[in-house]
Design a binder for these strands. Structure first.
Length: 311
DNA sequence: CGCCTTTGACCTGCGC
DNA sequence: GCGCAGGTCAAAGGCG
């Protein structure tokens, strides 16, 4: 591959799929669900994805919305890595191999030790024909490291939601109990190891589940400092537009689509993060946005500067 | 020509 | 230990 050359051996090369628990079930309120807005969880988690939230005055949360702000932060690769490596967040390798040492938050000992290990490509690992596929080999006993994950659901006709970054599809798999395949994408930036998974809900094919893993070490190509905007796409359906949080928004303000209906679950919380069951490291996390209405009322309420919302 | 998607094979991790 | 499912690789082909 073109970007294999400088792609680190990926301390956390996968999504935590193992054992079919990659994405639990998007089920409502499974164990380990945290409610954003009820603590520092949201900012810390978002921070792990490089979506740093900066309490700018210009982006001050609307009055009456207590609690930590969710948005308004500028995309800050440096800050991102700081949040990642330093703050125990992310640990997403990015371009800096040394940064790979820090793993998501409460990384356990085995994880950190594993990641600290220079990922040498000994061809002598598990049953793989050694020499010619050095990238595939992972030292035996070396645990995979999960990257922090962020997932959201959008109701969209298109699978691949525009988020300002360029992605290269590297795989597609049929998903058990789902008629819809799951697609795997990797950021085309050779130094960026962010991946995303896109799949459609088996229960509601109109819902696209997008899962990001890791944090970008670069600005988006599309709209470098764009904001987190959900907007209608050309089809009239809802398309998601996701970008690192930024200081200005020049996209059409989000409009709550009529098509969106409340989820069948208790709608009390607009955004929640989930501690994804990850037997390997246990600290992969994700946020689940269960519908756009929730995003608009909740998350965007904090992210989009007042005046940018046409509601 | 470069970049992207497709697709089958392979690897890994987990549950039984 | 075995089988299954998820995740990744990489060759091949398509497209602009």
């Amino acid at each position: 591959m073109d970007d294999d050359d400088d792609r680190p051996p990926e301390p956390g090369a996968d999504f935590g799929g193992g054992g079919g628990s990659s994405w639990p079930h998007l089920g409502p309120y499974s164990d380990g669900v945290y409610f954003l807005g009820a603590g520092a969880t949201e900012s810390s988690i978002l921070g792990e994805f490089g979506w740093n939230l900066r309490p700018d005055d210009e982006l001050r949360a609307p009055p009456g919305r207590p609690g930590p702000r969710v948005g308004g932060g500028a995309f800050d690769p440096a800050g991102a890595s700081a949040a990642a490596g330093g703050g125990g967040g992310g640990g997403f390798g990015g371009s800096d191999p040394s940064a790979a040492g820090g793993e998501a938050s409460t990384s356990n000992a085995s994880d950190s030790s594993a990641s600290e290990d220079p990922p040498e490509k000994s061809g002598s690992s598990g049953g793989k024909p050694p020499p010619e596929t050095p990238n595939k080999v992972r030292r035996k006993g070396q645990k995979r490291i999960r990257q922090p994950r962020f997932a959201f659901m959008t109701k969209s006709e298109v699978d691949n939601l525009e988020d300002g970054y360029r992605w290269r599809k590297y795989g597609q798999k049929a998903v058990k109990n789902s008629p819809h395949p799951r697609s795997y994408y990797r950021c085309t930036n050779s130094r960026c190891t962010v991946k995303k998974r896109v799949e459609r809900s088996s229960e509601d094919p109109t819902i696209v589940i997008t899962t990001y893993e890791g944090q970008h070490c670069h600005h988006s190509a599309g709209f470098p400092r764009g904001g987190f905007v959900i907007s209608r796409d050309a089809t009239g359906l809802v398309g998601g537009r996701l970008a690192p949080l930024a200081t200005h928004l020049d996209h059409p303000p989000f409009q709550l689509p009529q098509e969106i209906s409340p989820p069948p679950h208790p709608p009390s919380n607009y955004l929640r993060s989930t501690q994804l069951p990850s037997s390997s490291s246990g600290d992969s996390r994700a946020l689940q946005v269960h519908n756009l209405a929730d995003i608009d009322q909740g998350l965007l309420g904090d992210i989009v500067p007042p005046g940018m919302r046409n509601r």
